[in-house]
């Protein structure tokens, strides 16, 4: 009797194995959950990829949170998420926590975001800015001293300059201040700040003597209400566009957007599949949501490095 049970259970186990292998073989229908969290700037790209991934692998549940880049890394470094969205590279402090918890990761660039410098369409005097001029306007020392347009260039009008920018908690503000002032999060305080970029669009479009900055995607949606100003990159004046951000000439006001992948997660085939799918589709989907794709070869390169990352961590 015992023998029969033994044989039966063996047969059952083998049978189960067989069917599992078969499943893997055909069209590899995967399931499982993939947890993503992090930057709200990167969110639209990841959301778009997750949406398309649903068509390919309907049983894989992808969830995305928006705790911000820092909040995302906090969860990522505790091993609570598989993938982290980030609008800046990981910081040393965060790397240390990852190491403490034995978490290895791979950094992947998925798209570019350009920062646009804008004025009112009735502003006829500004044709370009240099980074020095922007610094002179935005640095902390400018508060209360640089108040008029003609303080920047004498030929500009003797009128008050009204500044608009994203709120100090946003990654966009961090990035702008780092690129222009030289220190992340340091700027004058007397400007109109709003977390809602639509408010900035309205502010600048209704104020002849205004000057502001925000993500390029908001300019693309409001071209008729705003004038885009080119920024001198050291050799020439460049306006942000698909081309200039992609080829790196719109510098320093463009930045890469990242996703970070946890090494233990790549043991699950659904995560590997998802990241490969991400790198394949990110270029096209980034354009859909208002960002700028990387050059094609960059995606190919990263697919290769992801492949070896997966192989190293099996």
């Amino acid at each position: 009797m015992k023998k029969v049970v033994c044989i039966l259970s063996l047969a059952l186990t083998l049978g189960a194995c067989g069917s599992k292998n078969e499943k893997k073989g055909d069209a590899h229908a995967l399931n499982g959950t993939i947890k993503i969290d992090g930057s709200s700037t990167v969110f639209p790209v990841s959301e778009a990829v997750a949406e398309e991934f649903r068509n390919v692998q309907p049983d894989v549940k992808v969830t995305i949170g928006v705790s911000g880049t820092g909040g995302g890394f906090q969860k990522f470094s505790r091993g609570e998420t598989n993938i982290s969205n980030a609008s800046r590279p990981i910081k040393d402090k965060e790397i240390a926590i990852c190491k403490e918890n034995n978490i290895n990761y791979l950094e992947l660039e998925v798209a570019y975001d350009g920062l646009a410098v804008l004025v009112n369409p009735e502003n006829t005097w500004v044709d370009s800015f240099t980074i020095e001029e922007l610094k002179k306007i935005w640095e902390p020392a400018a508060q209360g001293t640089i108040m008029k347009w003609n303080q920047i260039r004498p030929e500009w009008p003797d009128e008050e300059i009204h500044l608009y920018g994203p709120g100090v908690a946003s990654g966009t503000y961090d990035y702008f201040t780092e690129a222009v002032v030289g220190k992340s999060g340091s700027s004058r305080g007397d400007f109109t700040a709003s977390e809602d970029d639509h408010v900035l669009v309205q502010g600048i479009s209704g104020d002849k003597y205004s000057l502001g900055f925000f993500g390029l995607a908001y300019y693309s949606e409001n071209k008729d209400k705003l004038t885009l100003i080119g920024v001198h990159n050291g050799t020439e004046v460049v306006k942000p566009s698909l081309e200039t951000v992609k080829n790196g000439t719109y510098s320093p006001l463009s930045r890469p957007l990242f996703v970070y992948v946890n090494s233990t997660s790549v043991k699950s085939p659904e995560v590997v599949e998802f990241v490969n799918f991400y790198l394949e589709t990110a270029g096209e989907l980034a354009t859909d949501v208002g960002y700028i794709p990387l050059p094609e070869e960059k995606y190919t390169q990263q697919k290769e490095s992801f492949k070896s990352f997966v192989a190293d961590n099996q």
């Binding site: 969290d37 959301e47 649903r54 992808v62 969830t63 995305i64 949170g65 928006v66 705790s67 969860k75």
Partner: peptide, 10 residues
């Protein structure tokens, strides 16, 4: 949001 509610859940 602090507790960890998500922005995208399919």
């Amino acid at each position: 949001i602090v507790v960890g509610a998500l922005a995208y859940v399919p």
